[in-house]
Design a protein around this nucleic acid. Structure first.
Length: 274
DNA sequence: CTCCTATCCTGCGAGC
DNA sequence: TGCTCGCAGGATAGGA
């Protein structure tokens, strides 16, 4: 039975978070935060004391899949989890968890039905434990096949599991891991430590290309509602393997296969990927 | 240390 | 129609 492609692949990986970053930055540009008002004690972990979050907004940055909203006095770290969104409040909705009151009267609200998300302030040094162990940014030119090859040395886990490991490289989740492996013709279950240098070069290129294309497809639309999924813009129509188990490969027409790797559904073409 | 599994949580679609 | 059940998955705790 062929998979049905999910209607709303609400999986915020690097491209989705980057799109949300740009959207939130546009919403906050030139504004100031008066105060943060939590509606519960926390999500994946406690919000902690958010009272320092106020002042003119200096910028909105991204590190891995985290958003960083920086004011002159503090920086809010947030993660969209699976289903998180930021919006300019209209009326209250279920699963609204945190409201940022702005000086111009608008309210920016974090909503997250599944509550896999997170929000907390960076400490006085601008650090947070969640940021401490993160690996390289995939779009940073300093990350390349040689660096990946070194990181995989001796590792026996499936290559797909390791490119989703945020200590190896950040920002790659279940969708783009599958798509990058298809593009680089690598079978997802191959033991990572056995990939040679040239294969790592190919994989790095594929990861970069698929992420950049997805960011570009994320579009420039500025909306009052910036959310995790919906599949950034039109990119979801370009998936070659994700969610396509049982369907013919777009390249060779062989049936796409489906399995589980490290607890996550994984699809691949048995002919194109070795 | 490395690797894998269970867990958190809600919404949705399949099947009866 | 309305119910139950399984699945979706980022990050992490804990077990092997």
């Amino acid at each position: 039975m062929p998979d049905r492609r999910p209607e709303h692949p609400a999986m915020p990986e690097l491209p989705e978070v980057e799109t949300v970053r740009a959207g939130v930055e546009a919403l906050l540009s030139g504004s100031a935060i008066l105060h943060a008002e939590p509606h519960r004690s926390g999500l994946r972990q406690p919000f902690g004391d958010l009272s320092a979050l106020s002042g003119p907004v200096r910028g909105v940055r991204r590190r891995a899949k985290y958003l960083l909203i920086e004011t002159t006095k503090a920086t809010l770290l947030s993660h969209l989890g699976m289903t998180g969104s930021w919006r300019v409040a209209d009326s209250p909705r279920t699963h609204d968890h945190l409201t940022l009151h702005l000086a111009d009267g608008r309210r920016l609200v974090f909503n997250d039905p599944r509550r896999f998300g997170l929000a907390a302030l960076l400490d006085g040094n601008g650090d947070h434990p969640l940021l401490a162990e993160l690996g390289p940014e995939p779009l940073d030119p300093a990350w390349n096949g040689a660096v990946l090859h070194r990181a995989l040395r001796g590792r026996k886990a499936a290559i797909k599991a390791l490119i989703m490991d945020q200590q190896v490289v950040v920002g790659v989740g279940n969708i783009y891991a599958q798509e990058a492996l298809f593009r680089s013709a690598i079978r997802p279950q191959r033991p990572a430590g056995r990939l040679d240098r040239g294969t790592c070069d190919r994989l790095v290129d594929a990861i970069r290309n698929v992420l950049q294309e997805a960011i570009a497809a994320g579009g420039s639309t500025i909306s009052d509602f910036v959310h995790a999924g919906g599949g950034t813009g039109l990119f979801q129509h370009r998936f070659r393997v994700y969610g396509r188990g049982g369907q013919p490969c777009a390249v060779c027409a062989t049936a796409i296969r489906r399995t589980t790797i490290a607890g996550r559904t994984t699809c691949w073409c048995p002919r194109c990927q070795r």
